[in-house]
């Protein structure tokens, strides 16, 4: 299973300590900080979802609040998992002297967040027109 293989690699000390050559430690630390920045991005999404679930009053569209909260939570969880996977693959690439793994994920995340914002703007506008 590809999934279990990936998860094993996050934890495998051989994979991250012995393969290839030990790089300048500053590269490893920079890779770690990139991971941390992604993790905070994920945590911000999770925190946003939790805040929407408990601080937003029920919205005029049925279950929109719950859908919004769950979408933010799932997106945040995906960002956190992807952060550690990308960190492990980048660490491996650095040790082997290969190119860093390319990824479409940042673009996908930006599109999803932008799309969600546009949908909410539309919902607010429709609501405003109905009430006027």
């Amino acid at each position: 299973m590809i999934v279990f293989e990936a998860i094993r690699r996050w934890f495998d000390p051989h994979e991250l300590r012995e393969i290839g050559e030990t790089p300048d430690y500053r590269f490893s630390l920079a890779n770690e900080r990139t991971f941390l920045a992604w993790l905070r991005t994920g945590l911000a999404l999770v925190g946003g979802g939790l805040a929407v679930a408990q601080f937003l009053p029920p919205l005029p569209v049925r279950h929109l609040r719950e859908v919004l909260a769950i979408a933010l939570l799932l997106l945040g969880g995906a960002v956190a998992i992807r952060a550690v996977d990308h960190w492990a693959r980048a660490e491996r690439a650095i040790r082997l002297g290969r190119e860093l793994p390319a990824s479409r994920f940042p673009a996908l995340l930006a599109l999803l967040v932008g799309l969600g914002a546009v949908l909410l703007v539309v919902a607010v506008l429709v609501q405003a027109v109905r009430q006027s």
């Binding site: 934890f11 630390l29 999770v46 939790l50 939570l73 945040g76 956190a80």
Partner: peptide, 26 residues
């Protein structure tokens, strides 16, 4: 920098766990 590498996957998995927990609570 190599010591305590388990901290990274653990922090990510706990964060994802919070997300799953939040979905269950919603």
């Amino acid at each position: 920098s190599g010591a305590h590498r388990l901290a990274l996957p653990l922090a990510a998995l706990v964060s994802a766990g919070f997300a799953v927990l939040g979905v269950l609570l919603v």
